[in-house]
Simulated assay, not measured.
Amino acid sequence: MAAQWLPAPALAVLALGAWQALCMTVYRGKGYLLPSPLDVAGAAANNATLLAGAASTTLREAVLGYVLAALLGIALAAAMSQARLLERCLYPYAVLLQTVPVVAVAPLIVLWSGYNERSVVLIALIMALFPIVNNTLLGLRSTPVQLLELFALHRTGRWRTFIRLRLPAALPHTLAGLRISAGLSVIGAIVGEFIIGAGNAAGGLGVQIVFAQGRMDTALLFAEVIAATMLGFALFAAASGAGRLLLRHWHESVR
């Protein structure tokens, strides 16, 4: 069991060692370009209260955007799976949300909604929406034909077939989309905070990254980037853990 989990920590130790070696050789005396791991750890310890408050703000915005994206995405996919006309009308616009650069759209959202957390939540929602819609729709369209014919043979109604067959069959695909969107919601929150960063010194990690960059506090900047990365990883791990609990007794991907 230990050997199963050993490679990831070992790789992290090797990466830290390579980082420290670079700081002692190529970037020696250039901490403003690449601070050492110890400098970053010291900056994190000295600004623990700031990092904790910023991380909690970003987490709240990301989770709100994520939950709204999950509810809206699953509802849209369910509606599109029931009517091809509705799918042809709505799916191209879902694709547009994915293809239009959110950095280009974010200033418009802030302009319309204001320099507040609501804008950040909307940007996080936009970032997280498409994988949920796409994967859920794929799952709903991939229900085994034999099972659909069996339900039809027993004269099961369309609504009952959808609830008892299509939705459970689509669950692995939906959970895959939710795992992808967990990290994307954090990215969306950070991007939104970049946009509103000039107007709120007490904001989330994205705001603090903007201020640390302006002060050329590279060690703190690294600490904030690592905190944002760990935040995205934590949301991904939570979504993966929930998926394992839901699938562990019946689906091959977990069993």
Score class of each variant (00 low, 15 high):
residue 155 R to L: 04
residue 157 G to P: 07
residue 157 G to Y: 02
residue 157 G to K: 05
residue 158 R to M: 11
residue 158 R to V: 10
residue 158 R to T: 12
residue 159 W to Y: 13
residue 160 R to L: 13
residue 160 R to N: 11
residue 161 T to P: 06
residue 161 T to R: 08
residue 163 I to E: 15
residue 163 I to G: 14
residue 163 I to A: 06
residue 164 R to C: 08
residue 165 L to R: 10
residue 166 R to W: 06
residue 166 R to I: 01
residue 167 L to R: 14
residue 167 L to T: 14
residue 167 L to P: 04
residue 167 L to V: 11
residue 168 P to R: 04
residue 168 P to W: 09
residue 168 P to G: 06
residue 169 A to Q: 15
residue 169 A to W: 05
residue 169 A to H: 15
residue 171 L to F: 11
residue 172 P to H: 07
residue 172 P to M: 06
residue 172 P to G: 09
residue 173 H to N: 14
residue 173 H to M: 01
residue 173 H to T: 07
residue 175 L to E: 07
residue 176 A to M: 12
residue 176 A to K: 06
residue 176 A to I: 04
residue 177 G to K: 00
residue 178 L to R: 02
residue 179 R to M: 08
residue 179 R to A: 03
residue 181 S to G: 12
residue 182 A to S: 12
residue 182 A to K: 06
residue 182 A to L: 11
residue 184 L to Q: 06
residue 184 L to D: 00
residue 185 S to F: 02
residue 185 S to D: 01
residue 186 V to W: 03
residue 188 G to Y: 02
residue 189 A to N: 07
residue 189 A to K: 00
residue 190 I to P: 01
residue 191 V to M: 15
residue 193 E to R: 05
residue 194 F to N: 09
residue 196 I to Q: 05
residue 196 I to C: 04
residue 196 I to T: 09
residue 197 G to V: 00
residue 197 G to M: 04
residue 198 A to Q: 09
residue 201 A to F: 05
residue 201 A to M: 06
residue 201 A to I: 04
residue 203 G to D: 03
residue 204 G to D: 08
residue 205 L to D: 08
residue 206 G to F: 04
residue 207 V to F: 03
residue 207 V to E: 00
residue 208 Q to H: 09
residue 209 I to D: 02
residue 210 V to A: 03
residue 210 V to S: 14
residue 212 A to M: 08
residue 212 A to I: 13
residue 213 Q to M: 14
residue 213 Q to S: 13
residue 214 G to P: 02
residue 215 R to T: 11
residue 216 M to R: 15
residue 216 M to G: 15
residue 217 D to R: 15
residue 218 T to R: 12
residue 219 A to R: 09
residue 219 A to P: 01
residue 219 A to V: 00
residue 220 L to G: 00
residue 220 L to Q: 10
residue 220 L to E: 04
residue 221 L to F: 04
residue 221 L to N: 07
residue 222 F to I: 01
residue 223 A to L: 08
residue 224 E to L: 11
residue 225 V to G: 10
residue 225 V to D: 09
residue 226 I to C: 09
residue 226 I to H: 10
residue 228 A to D: 12
residue 230 M to K: 10
residue 230 M to C: 14
residue 230 M to I: 13
residue 233 F to G: 07
residue 233 F to E: 06
residue 233 F to K: 05
residue 234 A to D: 01
residue 234 A to Y: 02
residue 234 A to V: 04
residue 235 L to F: 00
residue 236 F to K: 14
residue 236 F to M: 05
residue 237 A to C: 09
residue 237 A to E: 03
